[in-house]
């Protein structure tokens, strides 16, 4: 009967489809909890195939905000964390969840804003003064609001500018609780200011009327660190493979590879691993 055949076909289709899943699994693989800014900048798309070529290890990247990435690692669901919020990272180490932290690279944050520049800060170099101007003009500002590394950096900058953002925030301050790309999309749609890492900004395609307003301030420095999750907390951590990834990142070869990642001829990340393994 035809209907039996139809049902058999549907069932067979499902089974063939399922059979494809194990084939995609990797024997040698690690899970790296990292940040949306690293993923959205395209660095992993460039870096990981090179690492796999060299070692045969597949790296599965979970891109989350730094806070969430550290939580994923705390739960034992990642082998390595690769994030950029030093204070949070040190707390993670203190709690015993990480083995050791290594500096890997840095890029910098840039303050993005609309070409109309209602706060009148375009081209200035003092990020603190720029933020004060935005607050005083109540110019629209998009905050990540997601405990990410960029969010932490933003909060630190408000502090450095002497602004108590919890008290000062109003309609003009929009905390969206999403990733870097989403924040840029939102800023483009609202003609708002937003703090972004340079890598995501360079590779971002939906810029609308946005441009860089403030850059080059030392306080915009954005350090990335990498840590192996402590196998004493979570015995399932793949110590050898995870350490191999970390060793690669801080090796001269890995550092050179990072420095060679460019978009439109612009270098996005600047390696700064310390030879003695800080």
């Amino acid at each position: 009967m035809l209907n039996r055949r139809l049902f058999a076909a549907i069932a067979a289709f499902a089974m063939i489809a399922v059979s494809g899943i194990p084939a995609m699994a990797q024997d040698k693989s690690i899970v790296v909890a990292s940040t949306t800014s690293t993923q959205d900048s395209g660095l992993f798309d460039y870096l990981l195939p090179i690492f796999k070529e060299k070692t045969g290890i597949a790296v599965k990247v979970i891109a989350q905000g730094t806070g969430q990435a550290l939580d994923t690692a705390r739960r034992g669901d990642a082998d390595v964390v690769f994030v950029h919020a030093k204070a949070q990272e040190l707390k993670f180490l203190e709690e015993g969840y990480g083995v050791k932290r290594f500096d890997v690279m840095y890029n910098d944050f840039v303050l993005i804003g609309p070409k109309s520049d209602p706060a009148g800060i375009a081209g200035t170099k003092d990020i603190a003064a720029a933020l004060v101007a935005i607050k005083d003009k109540k110019a629209p500002f998009v905050s990540r609001g997601d405990r990410s590394g960029t969010h932490s950096a933003e909060l630190n900058l408000w502090k450095a500018a002497g602004v108590d953002i919890d008290a000062a925030k109003g309609d003009w301050y929009r905390a969206i609780g999403q990733g870097m790309g989403a924040a840029l999309n939102t800023a483009a749609a609202m003609d708002a200011y937003v703090l972004s890492d340079r890598g995501t900004w360079i590779s971002f395609k939906n810029r609308g009327d946005l441009q860089i307003e403030v850059e080059g301030d030392k306080r915009l420095f954005n350090q990335y660190g990498v840590m192996l999750v402590n196998p004493e907390k979570h015995p399932t951590v793949k110590v050898d493979l995870g350490q191999a990834f970390i060793d690669f990142l801080i090796s001269p070869e890995g550092q050179k590879t990072i420095s060679e990642y460019k978009i439109d001829g612009k270098q996005l990340f600047f390696p700064d691993a310390k030879p003695e393994r800080s």
Partner: peptide, 19 residues
């Protein structure tokens, strides 16, 4: 995760966040 757990919908979300 690229090549492992990336589906149509998560790709769309990712590309959206990349602008």
């Amino acid at each position: 995760i690229e090549g492992f757990t990336r589906t149509m919908t998560t790709t769309i979300a990712l590309e959206t966040s990349k602008g």
